[in-house]
């Protein structure tokens, strides 16, 4: 991580309502804190209206304590690698069925749109596709492991 990366991260954090941000990478650790006391506010989920003519107002319906919106899953540069993040909380599957082969292994080269893994949540199957042609550098989760929203699943190198 060099000063340029830190600058980018600080900028990212200050553009959101995140008050505290921690990043650990090997023996490096970066903490960014803002303000005096952490203020927790409910932030409505981003409303995106792709094709609907009459967008319905939408409010997140979590009955649990409101939490600050986590950083949107974006791909951030880390030592030449890009992260593939989980868009939902769920179970990570590396293959379409227990008997079949994994979608990808470390070193696999995948085309844009090719499936990397499945995340299952409440019986909803979410196929995660590569958003660009890339090589799989690291697989950070075990098959059938529970993953959190925004957690890194893969490190990939854009080709």
């Amino acid at each position: 991580m060099d000063i340029k990366d830190i600058k980018v991260l600080v900028k990212l954090v200050t553009q959101t309502d995140i008050t505290e941000f921690e990043l650990e990478n090997g023996d490096q650790k970066l903490v960014i804190r803002r303000g005096s006391a952490p203020v927790v506010t409910a932030i409505p989920a981003p409303v995106i209206n792709p094709v609907q003519q009459t967008p319905a107002p939408f409010v997140p319906t979590s009955a649990a304590a409101p939490e600050a919106a986590p950083e949107m899953p974006v791909k951030s540069a880390t030592e030449g690698c890009e992260k593939v993040l989980s868009p939902i909380v769920g179970t990570f599957y590396r293959s379409p069925s227990p008997e079949s082969e994994s979608y990808v292994e470390v070193g696999s080269v995948v085309e844009k749109g090719q499936i990397l893994c499945i995340i299952e949540a409440m019986k909803l199957m979410n196929e995660i596709e590569a958003e660009f042609k890339c090589k799989v550098v690291k697989i950070l989760k075990e098959n059938a492991e529970v993953v959190e929203y925004g957690e890194t699943l893969f490190l990939v190198e854009a080709l």
């Binding site: 989920a45 981003p46 409303v47 995106i48 209206n49 792709p50 094709v51 609907q52 967008p55 319905a56 939408f58 997140p60 319906t61 868009p87 939902i88 909380v89 769920g90 949540a121 409440m122 019986k123 909803l124 979410n126 929203y149």
Partner: peptide, 15 residues
């Protein structure tokens, strides 16, 4: 369906 919700809300459609 093409709901304008965040992906993490999509599991709600199972119910």
């Amino acid at each position: 369906l093409r709901p304008s919700i965040a992906p993490r809300q999509a599991p709600q459609l199972t119910f």
